[in-house]
Design a binder for these strands. Structure first.
Lengths: 383, 383
DNA sequence: TTGTAGGCGTTATCAA
DNA sequence: TTGATAACGCCTACAA
């Protein structure tokens, strides 16, 4: 019956109650800021708490209340700057609401994702935030038993306890490809992301649509799909550029685009003169490479905030929460597509704007007003 | 007595037991892979579990056992690629050991850090992993009540339930500065990190030591300390280069170094001809800028793994865990310090090596053998 | 090998 | 306003 004797017994709420000469409930009332506690009692209880070094067990409270104040955030890889930004957005919002985050890297592995979903459900997280997840809705539903509120980026899953955030992937991709077409490119290849990611499929569709709209035949030989990493982009580009030598590359994301740039370097191809490249996301790295990467911007941090706020609303369950929300994107024309030769001044401007992405420097709520609301749009460096 | 009637009652272990016609204990045995359960019973129980859609409550189990299988990972900012890498290392190890991670961004804010430590203690995490934390050991001790095993990077806290991981900051900094001295630079400025970070102080010391060893006077006017971000580096460099025009900049980390590069660009200064720059960490971005950043490499991912493994050992408490561990660093000489003009081939090599940092592409345990063991050393691109 | 009887530390429901 | 008492869902002795 005794616990491990090595460990001294924990101070419990009961002990505090005894010490303060009140009932357990009263201590609980003090801890939870219940209004109907006399100041005198409150002070006495607080004194006992301090004296005994009492720590409330959120565990026990959660077991009793059924709420853990805990959110599972599931992403492919925290090492990808895109998700770093997203998670930061989540954390800023959730921390202020009193939630703690379980961080889960799936590493693009469906099995690990399922396992994590399982664990999170067993840990009784109050909600789930899913980014870049595999889209199989059955999994989702099964894993969480239809009981946990979810906000998921680019998931086909449709259910009344789920909100889906749709990045405007196809529109963004179409803008990028149209831009390349406008520059006179005909042979535009696509380095696609994994087909298990809905976002990758959306961007692939946008690519096809833009070609079709321009009367250019879709050539499957110009499309390679692989892991959305620098290395993935590197190898895909190597293969593509070795074979067919397309004039332009539209990449699933910036990481792949940068990998493609490395491949071009290896092959002795000049960017943008020999090969034009466009990425997607606008991560910080995109502004650091030479030439600066033309890309389709997704407001990552804001998306994390938005997702978290939607989830919070769902948890409050007093308001009607939309089942589907669209996040706009914008084409950022820079150096790698060949639309313009960037002046040194323009480059400086871009880099200086990049400094604004240092979240640590920002006052806590400085970006409060910058919520996503605008439509997909096109921005050039001067604007 | 009834719960919220809206929510259907959860299936409990008892229900499963009843359904399977066995005792709760038996179900528990099955769940926890107790060896002495007949296959037949195990199968029956498992069938009932599936039939009822039962989910074990880790919460309740934790309350009972006193272990949550949960680790708190506290970092300044997940948006900083350095910590993204570190956290990934932690996750890879901890996931395999069955632990879930609470991710906590302190945003360089001591109050938030304290609050998080408090929450984590109340959540009864089994252990704590602290990176870039504020060094006040009293806080630590108080916050966790001396009961939670800790592994902390660069913390002065010394106690028997804490292991400290010391990055070899002063040695690394000294190597960097000596390198600049060897190149003939006399006026070497230091863009230092916040003095609340022990690592920043260590690097500052190394800077001083190297100067002293070379008989160069330490000039406080050549040192600015600020937030370890691109923006911080940018503003510090602007100030430093405006005033005194030092010949070289040694920066607390790569982010600041990159900020400094942006500042140089703005001032029309060429790197490395007008200003030589050396960073610290070797994040991916360091390989992407032009000229490529000379830096002092810290094996971030490996450090995350190491820290986690040490913590796991502490939790196993069967082995003697060291109270202090040193992590070596190495000087990576590239383009921004002016030691050499990088050939295009050399740049390609560096970039191709960068691709290896795509963790998603790696097989789960491919990097198992690459644990940190070597001494601080100096590497040039050709080696 | 399996069953029984608490108790882990809270909060909720009453009544006082 | 506060006090007793019963859950919350699981695990661990111990007995069978």
């Amino acid at each position: 019956m005794q616990r491990n004797p090595r460990r001294k017994k924990r101070v419990t709420l009961r002990d505090v109650a005894k010490h303060a000469g009140v009932s357990p409930k009263t201590v609980s009332n003090v801890l939870n800021d219940w209004p109907y506690v006399s100041d005198e009692t409150r002070r006495r209880v607080q004194a006992s708490i301090d004296a005994l070094g009492y720590r409330q067990s959120i565990l026990a409270a959660s077991l009793r209340t059924g709420r853990t104040k805990t959110i599972g955030v599931v992403i492919p890889d925290i090492t990808n700057p895109f998700f770093g930004q997203v998670v930061r957005g989540c954390e800023d919002v959730l921390y202020n609401a009193g939630y703690s985050i379980f961080l889960c890297n799936t590493n693009e592995d469906a099995a690990k994702e399922r396992t994590y979903l399982d664990i999170l459900a067993n840990r009784r997280v109050d909600g789930l935030l899913l980014f870049g997840a595999h889209p199989s809705s059955e999994e989702l539903t099964a894993a969480v038993h239809g009981e946990i509120p979810i906000v998921a980026e680019d998931s086909p899953a449709e259910s009344d306890n789920t909100t889906v955030i749709d990045i405007d992937n196809s529109a963004g991709a179409a803008m990028a490809v149209r831009h390349l077409l406008d520059l006179g490119h005909k042979r535009i290849a696509h380095l696609g992301g994994p087909s298990e990611r809905a976002a990758a499929n959306g961007r692939h569709e946008g690519y096809q649509q833009a070609l079709e709209a321009a009367g250019v035949d879709y050539d499957p030989a110009l499309v390679i799909r692989c892991k959305p990493t620098m290395r993935g982009g590197y190898h895909a580009a190597l293969q593509l550029l070795g074979d067919e030598q397309p004039a332009a590359l539209f990449c699933y994301n910036d990481l792949m685009a940068i990998g493609a740039m490395v491949a071009c370097r290896r092959l002795g191809l000049e960017i943008p003169d020999d090969v034009a490249i466009v990425g997607f996301d606008d991560i910080a790295m995109a502004s650091l490479v030479t030439p600066i990467l033309t890309t389709v911007r997704v407001q990552q941090y804001e998306m994390g905030r938005l997702a978290s706020e939607l989830l919070l609303k769902r948890l409050g369950d007093d308001e009607e929460v939309p089942g589907r929300v669209k996040v706009p994107v914008e084409l950022i024309v820079r150096g790698s597509c060949g639309a313009k030769r960037m002046s040194s001044r323009q480059v400086s401007l871009i880099l200086e704007r990049l400094l604004d992405s240092d979240l640590v420097d920002l006052a806590p709520c400085e970006s409060d007003e910058s919520h996503i609301a605008s439509q997909a749009s096109c921005v050039t460096p001067d604007s």
